[in-house]
């Protein structure tokens, strides 16, 4: 039993990332009808927002310590981040330590801006073009964004640690009534899951309980009629695009301590997120979220030792296998609506 709980927990963090990216993809698809292959790149850009903030906070000046000497007997140079000299060593160090959560504040405006520029500058011109063209142009954009990041940050993963207070693990076994030590789970993953849950809840609440959300939902159902009622639906949809970009970016920001970001992390996630969206059903927001968590957990179960012994290689292909089976048995995905992406 504890083994099963452990696998579920293990699957949750990846599942959260899938769910968040898939949520954004579905939002864009449901509103604008655009298949956005650059969504993984937005996830990656979010992660690099965190990297950037971390780097900026760590900009230091060096002073010569008159007391200490290094091993050659020369005066020791001490690097002090500017932030520590401004806010005092303790607060400064704390700010640097908490750079990843702080970068959420930094990433929100950045990602919204990127989303707005992308929609107004590029995607807007592709509403009337075939889906294949949309896929291809956003695919090209993803390559470009990825290469720009590679140019500035290099090809190697950049470790961006979680705050020291949260980098240890929690013994979940005690909480859940199993033996102590049976389920050791890193705090950060738990936080990531909660964060994802909050974001998903926020997006759903936003769509459900605000006037803006109501208009957007109406627009998803029948864009033309909403337009005829005198509502400037295009502008709302632009904002939805920005929100979706922001969701992907935040997913990326919080993911940095789990996996050091590199320039192609977006592509790796994109492929799986598309599978998630399709499994969940194109255009269905709850479907995307459910399928994200489902596939994350399934992937984690498939990588259990016993399962791999029984079916070697299953951990590598489980997601694709599930996708194929679901697409063939339930052509619209788990919760797909009728008439979305059908000829």
């Amino acid at each position: 039993m504890d083994a099963i709980v452990l696998q579920v927990l293990n699957g949750l963090d990846k599942g959260s990332a899938y769910a968040l990216i898939a949520l954004g993809l579905t939002l864009i698809f449901g509103t604008l009808g655009v298949v956005n292959f650059a969504h993984g790149a937005l996830f990656m850009l979010g992660a690099f927002c965190a990297v950037t903030l971390n780097t900026v906070l760590n900009i230091s000046f060096s002073t010569i310590d008159p007391v200490k000497k290094d091993f050659l007997g020369n005066p020791l140079k001490v690097e002090t981040p500017y932030i520590e000299s401004w806010f005092g060593p303790e607060l400064g160090a704390a700010i640097i330590d908490w750079s990843v959560p702080i970068s959420i504040l930094f990433a929100i405006p950045v990602m919204i801006l990127i989303g707005l520029c992308m929609e107004r500058g590029l995607i807007k011109h592709f509403y009337k073009r075939p889906h294949a063209d949309q896929i291809l142009v956003t695919f090209g954009l993803a390559i470009v964004l990825q290469e720009i990041v590679k140019y500035f940050y290099g090809a190697n993963p950049i470790p961006t640690p979680a705050p020291a207070a949260l980098s240890s693990s929690v013994d979940m076994g005690v909480f859940l009534g199993f033996d102590a030590g049976s389920i050791i789970y890193p705090y950060w993953r738990l936080i990531y899951f909660c964060f994802a849950a909050v974001i998903v809840g926020g997006v759903f609440a936003f769509l459900r309980y605000t006037t803006f959300g109501m208009v957007v939902r109406a627009g998803m159902a029948d864009r033309e009629t909403v337009g005829l009622l005198g509502i400037h639906i295009d502008r709302r949809f632009t904002i939805v695009f920005a929100i979706a970009a922001c969701v992907a970016g935040l997913a990326g920001v919080m993911y940095t301590p789990i996996n050091s970001p590199n320039y192609h992390m977006g592509m790796d996630f994109l492929v799986l997120s598309f599978v998630v969206v399709v499994v969940g059903g194109m255009g269905s927001l709850p479907g995307a979220v459910a399928a994200g968590f489902l596939l994350g957990v399934l992937e984690s179960f498939a990588s259990m030792g016993q399962v791999v012994d029984l079916l070697p290689g299953i951990n590598q292909i489980i997601i694709y296998l599930v996708a194929i089976v679901i697409l063939l048995t339930r052509p619209r995905g788990l919760m797909g609506r009728k008439g979305v992406m059908e000829e």
């Binding site: 889906h131 896929i135 599978v275 194109m282 290689g313 296998l321 996708a323 697409l327």
Partner: peptide, 28 residues
Amino acid sequence: ISLRRSGIYFSILTLAFAQMSFALAYSV
């Protein structure tokens, strides 16, 4: 199998098959 669906579903199905072959070629 893939041609049962069209549009983006077809793209995803072929992608899934290719990624599966890739993963299997690497491991099992």
